Amino acid sequence: MVDYKRLGERIAQTRKSQKLSQEKLAELADITATNLSHIERGKIKTSIETLVAIANALNVTSNDLLCDSLNHSTQELKNQIAACLDGCTMQELHLIADVAAAVKKRMRE
Rank of each mutant, 00 (worst) to 15 (best):
Q18G: 08
D86M: 11
R106L: 10
L28R: 15
D3M: 07
N59F: 03
G8S: 01
A82G: 04
D3R: 10
C84T: 04
E92A: 09
N35K: 04
A101T: 09
D86P: 02
C84G: 07
H72V: 03
L66W: 12
H72D: 13
S62P: 14
E49F: 10
A26H: 10
E9N: 12
D68W: 14
R10L: 03
A97Q: 15
A101W: 10
L95V: 09
I81N: 06
R15N: 01
L85Q: 14
D30W: 10
Y4D: 01
L36H: 02
Q75E: 14
N59W: 02
A26R: 00
K43D: 05
H38G: 01
C88N: 06
L25C: 05
N63K: 12
A53V: 02
R106H: 11
D86G: 02
L85C: 07
D68E: 11
H38F: 09
K104T: 07
I39G: 02
I96F: 15
L51M: 13
S47F: 04
K45T: 10
T89A: 07
N71F: 10
G87M: 07
G8H: 04
I11V: 15
A102P: 02
R6I: 04
S62Q: 10
N63F: 09
Q75N: 11
I31S: 00
L95I: 09
S47R: 13
R10A: 00
T89C: 03
D98E: 13
D30K: 15
K104C: 06
A12Q: 12
R15C: 01
D68F: 15
E27A: 14
D86R: 13
I81W: 12
E23S: 14
Q75D: 12
Q91P: 01
R106M: 08
S47C: 05
E49H: 12
G8I: 01
I96C: 07
E49R: 13
K104Q: 11
L58A: 05
C67E: 08
A55N: 09
A33D: 04
S37Q: 08
L25I: 02
G87W: 11
L7T: 04
S47G: 08
L20I: 01
C67V: 08
L85P: 02
E109W: 13
N79F: 07
L65A: 03
E9A: 08
G42E: 05
R106S: 06
T89D: 07
A12H: 13
N71R: 13
K16W: 00
S17A: 09
V60R: 15
M1E: 09
C88D: 04
T14L: 08
T32F: 08
Q18I: 00
N35G: 06
H94K: 14
A57Y: 11
K105N: 06
T89P: 05
Q22R: 15
T46W: 03
G8E: 02
V60T: 07
Q91S: 09
N79Q: 10
L70A: 03
C84P: 02
D64E: 11
V2Y: 05
K19L: 08
R15L: 05
L58S: 04
T74E: 14
Q80V: 05
